[in-house]
């Protein structure tokens, strides 16, 4: 064929390509009406994760929660949930939800990568970009796993109060460790912090890398704090960032480590 003979073919190709792309991208694009939770917007994703935690707090079914979380392919779900708990706490979300997220973070922090430990009982469908026949996500009956929680009715009591002089801490902290009667760390316990101009609260288990029963609060120098485990009757008063001496005799504000334990039931 001569060079001129190719010209109409090329012109047709270009026009056809343009029409095809316009049709497939603008007029009739692929519709993702059957999406996976993983494709959701960040705020919806956060709500979904919070819902997974709330469901877990009720059922105590960790394999099922892990299967649900695995859809999102989070590299470190324990940290994701810790951060989510802190965000939701700051947003003033219901306490039941925040506590559930803290429990979820603690439960995940106590285990290896959840993606590797998805239950073989739970069949989670892989995300599919094209409309397909819906695939079953089987929900097996809950196995007898329990959400870690303190023994009902027994208030926590102060076991130990220790001044901590650690220059590596980012701020003077009130560090709290909560353990049950058997000495096991208890996540999801609410701690109330009160000072003369305000109050705040935090939960244990939000930093699972430091222990499931651990929680902390950054103090402001010169302010005196009272700390109380919620539902406990004995507040710890007069906590302030006391001076500590570093290696070169330089002064820095110290922290407090409070250990609470649930007494054994008679």
């Amino acid at each position: 064929m001569k060079r001129e003979d190719w010209l109409p073919i090329l012109m047709g190709l270009v026009i056809g390509l343009a029409i095809g792309l316009y049709y497939s991208w603008v007029i009739n694009p692929v519709e993702f009406v059957e999406t996976s939770p993983a494709s959701m917007r960040d705020d919806f994703k956060a709500d979904y994760l919070a819902l997974i935690a709330s469901a877990y707090a009720y059922s105590g079914d960790l394999p099922r929660a892990e299967a649900r979380i695995a859809i999102f392919q989070e590299p470190n779900p324990a940290i994701t949930f810790s951060q989510l708990a802190q965000k939701r706490l700051a947003m003033g979300r219901p306490q039941s939800e925040t506590r559930a997220i803290a429990l979820m973070a603690a439960a995940l922090g106590d285990r290896p990568t959840p993606m590797a430990s998805v239950s073989s009982q739970t069949k989670v469908v892989s995300p599919s970009p094209i409309k397909t026949t819906p695939t079953l996500t089987r929900t097996p009956p809950p196995p007898p796993t329990r959400t870690p929680s303190p023994t009902p009715g027994a208030p926590f009591e102060l076991l130990d109060q220790e001044k901590v002089c650690d220059p590596d801490l980012y701020a003077p902290l009130i560090q709290v460790v909560v353990i049950d009667a058997a000495g096991r760390a208890v996540p999801g316990v609410e701690i109330l912090v009160v000072w003369d101009t305000g109050q705040d609260h935090f939960f244990t288990g939000l930093k699972p890398e430091l222990g499931l029963g651990y929680g902390d609060f950054a103090m402001t120098e010169g302010v005196i704090y009272t700390v109380q485990v919620v539902k406990s009757e004995s507040p710890i008063t007069g906590l302030t960032a006391e001076d500590c001496f570093g290696d070169g005799d330089e002064l820095f504000p110290g922290s407090w480590l409070l250990t609470f334990q649930q007494p054994e039931l008679p």
């Binding site: 109409p8 073919i9 090329l10 012109m11 047709g12 190709l13 270009v14 026009i15 056809g16 390509l17 343009a18 029409i19 095809g20 792309l21 316009y22 049709y23 497939s24 991208w25 694009p29 692929v30 993702f32 999406t35 494709s39 959701m40 917007r41 960040d42 919806f44 970009p129 094209i130």
Partner: peptide, 24 residues
């Protein structure tokens, strides 16, 4: 040419590089 171009455009737009919905 038009028909070939149309087919290539549809395959590219629907299969190879469809519209991505990431914020559903």
């Amino acid at each position: 040419g038009l028909i070939i171009g149309l087919i290539v455009g549809l395959i590219y737009g629907w299969v190879l590089r469809p519209v991505e919905y990431v914020d559903t």
